[in-house]
């Protein structure tokens, strides 16, 4: 048993050491627990985010890979068709497609290198309008052939072509019709082209601003003509 003096001294010492601590945040432990929880949640979220990032990167990579593969394949096929169609449309000459500007197929540009018969390999813009149109048609058909669609609409594609080229174009169309199951809808003003159609629809505007569709059955007309 100690006397009150010693006790008082001990207590004073304790109080002094408590006072030495200075201001104290008594809810620090609770705050700490809360913040640790928060940190845990954040860490979990972070992990999730990291995983998401990886997943996204992976999927982007997948997309890119798939895209590259398919683009590369498509390119090869289109190029093949293009070369064939070009030669056929121009009855000679050479052309090919090339991916330029980048090693990555996905970023690269598609350039057309065309060499009509008897001409040097030159830039597309230096070709005549007809040649340009034919080249473009060759490309479009090449693309079309790569992924044949059930319907093909050509809106005044033959406009810049001369008669010889129109014939070749129409031959090509015939060949395409044979090759594929596609139905063609061809808008044209050219009589030669019209004459190569299996059937014709006329669009008239008798009343201003109101179109009318008139069916012209060429087969029946020929029969009619033949009957006369």
């Amino acid at each position: 048993m100690r006397n009150s003096g010693v006790e008082s001294e001990a207590m004073d010492q304790l109080v002094a050491s408590r006072e030495r601590i200075g201001p104290v945040n008594l809810v620090a432990a609770e705050e700490l627990a809360r913040i640790e929880q928060e940190a845990g949640a954040s860490a979990a979220e972070q992990a999730e985010l990291v995983e998401a990032v990886h997943r996204l990167r992976g999927s982007i990579g997948n997309l890119n890979r798939e895209g590259r593969e398919r683009l590369r394949a498509a390119f090869e096929e289109v190029n093949e068709h293009f070369q064939r169609l070009f030669t056929r449309l121009f009855e000679g000459g050479q052309a090919h497609l090339a991916l330029i500007d980048s090693d990555d197929v996905l970023e690269a540009g598609l350039e057309i290198f065309a060499q009509p018969p008897g001409k040097r390999l030159q830039s597309l813009t230096l070709l005549s309008g007809g040649e340009q149109a034919l080249t473009a048609i060759a490309l479009i058909f090449a693309l079309f052939l790569t992924n044949p669609a059930p319907i093909c609409v050509l809106d005044e594609v033959d406009a810049p072509l001369d008669d010889a080229n129109i014939d070749r174009f129409c031959d090509l169309l015939d060949a395409m019709v044979k090759e594929t199951d596609t139905r063609y809808l061809i808008v044209t003003h050219n009589a030669v082209t019209m004459s190569r159609m299996h059937r014709l629809f006329g669009v008239t505007m008798i009343e201003k601003g109101v179109s009318r569709l008139v069916s012209v059955d060429l087969g029946a007309a020929e029969e009619l003509l033949a009957a006369e």
Partner: peptide, 8 residues
């Protein structure tokens, strides 16, 4: 099927 022309 085949070629359908639209004229006008």
């Amino acid at each position: 099927p085949g070629l359908t022309g639209v004229v006008g």
